[in-house]
Design a protein around this nucleic acid. Structure first.
Lengths: 124, 124
DNA sequence: GTCGTTGCAAAGCCTTTGCAGGGAA
DNA sequence: TTCCCTGCAAAGGCTTTGCAACGAC
């Protein structure tokens, strides 16, 4: 059975306070502000547990590597700005509706990663 | 200046003989059949060079990790079958044409990864 | 008291790098 | 001969794991 610990609560709190894609070092840094002793291995173990529990989702970003976010958002994709290096959430789906897989194929899931320049970086 | 070596030729030959997404171990294994002494570090160094030269493309697949493919294909996306674990190429683009990024944003590139079941695995 | 959890250190992948010898031009 | 390239081993990131102490219930 799962036990409540200060460490696990701290990690969940980090995601409440920073509702965006987070890396392990970021989670550890923010979490340490709540539980100073917070160990790296503990972060990894709890993240794995939270992913298994469906509370957070692992995002393997092609440019940024492994990141995590809360699961309680509706369907969306991520836009990575090459200028300021931030990641924006784009609600909705950018996938074509029709015939993207051949007949007989079953499409179960998709990952879409967009990149370019955000409005601030594009507006010279 | 770049020099022709048996190792580099072997690696390029691997991509000619196996025109699909390849992992480093696969490249090394196939390449060793041509140049038995082929070292892992040599594979990494040559792959990096070939990517820089634009001859092969690195694909950071969210489920499969780092893979490589020849660049001389037209635009396409990859479908990963969860049944047989193979990756199929889907020619064309599966991205919606309209308004997928907010006003002012500039979309420069996108990565789309599809997964599900191929026709063979779906038609039990 | 039980046993899941933590911190610490070590180990495991994957990838890169330092170095001396070897080979292409 | 020059100096790029290779093999080997070591080192660097990121992530997992073994272990003894700790702490939730």
């Amino acid at each position: 059975m799962k036990r409540q610990t200060a460490q696990r609560r701290a990690i969940e709190q980090v995601f409440e306070q920073h509702d965006r894609l987070l890396s392990i070092p970021e989670i550890r840094a923010y979490g340490s502000q709540i539980v100073p002793s917070l160990n790296q291995a503990t972060v990894y173990r709890n993240i794995k547990q939270l992913v298994a529990a469906g509370r957070i989702r692992q995002v393997n970003h092609p440019d940024l590597g492994t990141r995590y976010e809360r699961t309680q958002k509706s369907h969306h994709h991520h836009f990575h700005c090459n200028g300021c290096n931030r990641v924006m959430v784009l609600p909705g789906c950018a996938l074509k509706d029709d015939h993207i897989v051949p007949d007989g194929f079953v499409l179960e899931s998709h990952d879409i990663f967009l990149s370019g320049l955000c409005d601030q970086c594009a507006g010279h």
